[in-house]
Nucleic acid binder design. Structure first.
Lengths: 223, 223
DNA sequence: TTGTCAACTGTCAGTGGCTGTCATTAGCCT
DNA sequence: AGGCTAATGACAGCCACTGACAGTTGACAA
């Protein structure tokens, strides 16, 4: 790799890290692109040569994680039921995603920024839009697995949408908690996914399975 | 009502109508706030005194519709299962929403603008964020119905999230079709809601119920 | 090594969304 | 009629973002 290439990568990395640190410290809206550029010792114009927008920088890490998850879904054996495949892909990609993130920035910073996303309307909106795009991509993967046409059969999009909805509820609850660590997110995800069937049943007198503000890890070590 | 009050209402109405018409005609991003203000013969500053943002004007009508839906959910008899209550509230509020919208702008314009939302990333993002806020509100209503605590029991948020997810998939598909009328949306909604259970089942060899690009109204007149 | 090309960067100017300020206008009330 | 106050317009300024142009620096061949 040439010197030029190396410098470029260093600049992008520095910009990314500076951006996320500033976002996590003082907030997204309170951080101007000029601030980020100054922190990385480049001009504002240069920032926009590396990132299409302020938002683009904010979701750079998420993009990586998402692509890993899609790969994991693709790698699932054909026999599994769609919803199982999604859940197992999530479990399987967990560590892979962790490594990929850590290659760019400390995981601690990523988690801290995740809470900024949830508490910043503009970022949350962008996050949700990106999530639906992801869902469309995954719906096509699921449809392909089952030999179906996404436009002819509603089910692929519906399962993926349901799965995604539960994931988002989980993220939301998790980010509002005090123990917003990786383990807590994994446990919460499992708990909420377990609630899909009970929640859709008319009979809510079934097991309530209280799992809320308190730190009540239900299941772990599923890797 | 005084003259002042009347003039204010007229101005807001004119601004709203001008905005939506311009959005529908030439696109959201292609329309500047100055354009809207000019069309309504006021200054740009005045536009921002009536609407907090360009986006705020875009979702003014949606806000009305959503509040009607929430009311409808609240009005559902306590005996119904949560998912049924949501679906029936939707059916029940259909006409009420229509009237409320028509009071502000022609329904045709509203439907046309709906497609602009889906095709404009910034608007779609805002729409999704607003949708999750709505879901939180409805989750609390559902929880109250069942005598549960939203933070202690995951199920209220999960059902609502699932319902919302299906609604959004429906909107998306609907807006991409040629016959994007009210009746088509109603039919599509019913079709997709019917697919929740089948989609979550592992067995996808069941009834495929092909309903896609083609104009294939499945059920109507459920009012 | 050196000269040339292409890539990278900084500077500057400009647009659009949005806000604060202040003077002016116009409805309201006595 | 005249004073009070809400509504408005005009102006200045911030921030995200973009296009244009010029200067700098790595890459590569002679």
């Amino acid at each position: 790799m040439g010197l030029r290439e190396l410098k470029k990568q260093r600049t992008r990395d520095l910009l990314l890290r500076s951006a996320l640190e500033l976002f996590a410290e003082r907030g997204y809206e309170e951080t101007t692109v000029d601030d980020i550029a100054d922190a990385a010792d480049v001009s504002q114009r240069t920032f926009f040569r590396y990132f299409a927008s302020k938002e683009d920088a904010a979701f750079f890490v998420s993009r990586l994680a998402e692509s890993r998850f899609v790969e994991a879904v693709r790698a699932r054996p054909a026999g599994e039921a769609p919803l199982d495949a999604l859940r197992l892909a999530l479990v399987a990609s967990w560590s892979t995603i962790g490594e990929a993130v850590e290659q760019l920035i400390p995981m601690e910073l990523h988690l801290r920024f995740y809470r900024v996303i949830e508490s910043t309307p503009a970022l949350l909106a962008a996050h949700l839009r990106r999530a639906t795009e992801l869902e469309e991509e995954i719906a096509r993967v699921i449809a392909a697995r089952e030999g179906l046409d996404v436009d002819a059969d509603p089910r692929p999009r519906v399962v993926v949408a349901v799965f995604g909805a539960v994931m988002r509820v989980t993220e939301r609850i998790w980010s509002a908690r005090d123990d917003a660590g990786l383990a807590a997110l994994r446990d919460l995800t499992a708990t909420y996914l377990d609630q899909v069937a009970p929640a859709l049943t008319g009979d809510w007198r079934g097991p309530a399975l209280a799992e809320g503000a308190g730190p009540t890890p239900q299941r772990s070590n599923e890797t």
